[in-house]
Amino acid sequence: MRLRGARRSTNIEDRRRSGGRGGAIGGLGIGGVLLVLAIGYFTGIDVTPILNGAPTESSAPRDLTEGEQRAADFTAAVLGSTEDVWTQIFPEQAGRQYRAPTLVLFSGQTASPCGGASGATGPFYCPADRKAYLDTQFFATLSQRLGAKGDFAQAYVIAHEVAHHVQNELGILPQVAEARRAASQTEANALTVRLELQADCLSGVWAAHVEGMLEPGDIEEALNAARQIGDDTLQRNAGRVPQPHTFTHGTSEQRARWFATGYDSADISACDTFRARNL
């Protein structure tokens, strides 16, 4: 991804030097993530099936490494591109102004109004404070443990969490949260799958509008990342038989296909997963 000269977002809250100080708690397992979903509507990339129990860093103040600084700069550039894209196309496609989110960088563990999180839970978005949360160490996890290499795979992760903010701006998150409260667990999971696939599609819409930044192979990196974090693949890699009724993010095939749908259309309206008969 070509980011030289790209505008860096200033909507970043960096908690890494303090190690997430201020009410930080440990990692969440699958049950913990579902509990947060029920209480605060926590949306993100759930990799707990294979990372649950991964070590977290100390909360003691520390200096940032050169690699962490590069990750922060990369994140600021990608976040800036999402701000530019959504600010431009929101009035055209949604008929409203776009209000950008804040992105919180943390290390090891942190707290949010939607609950606590650790690096093992993956990045997430909390609508209660309109902030996305990212442990930049997840980039290494994405490449080394999940098999999703490349800078555009990392950019896709950021764009996916921003896409949840887009859903919040469109009023979709509160509607789904209300529907989930009245649903059975299986029905609630199915609604969450549609929400996550829509976020993948909206990530594709963003990608379609940053084509000047794309390099050969970038889109395939994003598609591969989407496949590697499908529920079926994560459960299989954790040594389990995939259980579709427990899926909360969609299969590998679905995630890649909906990203491609957004990319090919470049249009928010193509991402209505809630009316789609064939997910």
Score class of each variant (00 low, 15 high):
114 C>D: 09
202 L>F: 04
92 E>I: 15
181 R>H: 06
35 L>Q: 09
71 A>C: 03
34 L>N: 02
51 L>N: 04
24 A>D: 02
243 Q>F: 11
101 P>C: 07
68 E>D: 12
48 T>E: 06
62 R>L: 13
15 R>N: 00
224 N>M: 00
31 G>L: 01
196 E>A: 05
43 T>V: 15
189 N>T: 03
65 T>L: 12
94 A>M: 11
263 Y>F: 15
200 D>M: 06
119 G>W: 06
21 R>L: 04
166 V>Q: 08
35 L>W: 11
179 A>H: 00
245 H>M: 05
57 E>D: 14
140 A>H: 05
124 F>I: 03
34 L>S: 02
225 A>E: 01
245 H>Y: 04
248 T>H: 01
133 Y>T: 07
65 T>G: 15
192 T>A: 13
34 L>H: 10
31 G>Y: 05
160 H>E: 01
45 I>T: 13
212 G>Y: 00
258 W>R: 09
34 L>F: 10
6 A>D: 01
243 Q>H: 10
217 G>W: 10
225 A>M: 11
93 Q>I: 03
163 A>I: 10
157 V>Q: 14
106 F>I: 07
168 N>S: 15
57 E>S: 14
168 N>F: 15
27 G>C: 15
188 A>K: 02
199 A>R: 04
70 R>M: 14
123 P>A: 07
222 A>E: 00
94 A>R: 14
47 V>F: 06
49 P>D: 07
252 S>I: 03
79 L>R: 07
89 I>H: 02
169 E>S: 09
150 G>V: 10
119 G>Q: 13
134 L>R: 03
174 P>M: 13
198 Q>R: 07
78 V>W: 02
149 K>W: 05
194 R>Y: 05
39 I>G: 13
258 W>V: 12
266 A>I: 00
137 Q>C: 01
135 D>C: 08
180 R>P: 03
108 G>Y: 11
237 N>I: 00
2 R>D: 11
215 E>P: 02
135 D>N: 14
144 Q>H: 14
249 H>R: 11
254 Q>Y: 07
78 V>D: 02
195 L>P: 06
16 R>M: 13
32 G>E: 00
4 R>W: 00
87 T>V: 10
201 C>E: 01
34 L>V: 11
9 S>F: 00
120 A>T: 03
141 T>Q: 15
205 V>H: 12
15 R>H: 08
167 Q>T: 04
61 P>H: 09
141 T>C: 13
204 G>Q: 04
236 R>K: 14
216 P>S: 04
86 W>A: 03
271 C>S: 06
62 R>G: 13
151 D>G: 04
135 D>W: 13
146 L>N: 05
117 A>V: 15
10 T>P: 03
199 A>F: 10
6 A>Y: 04
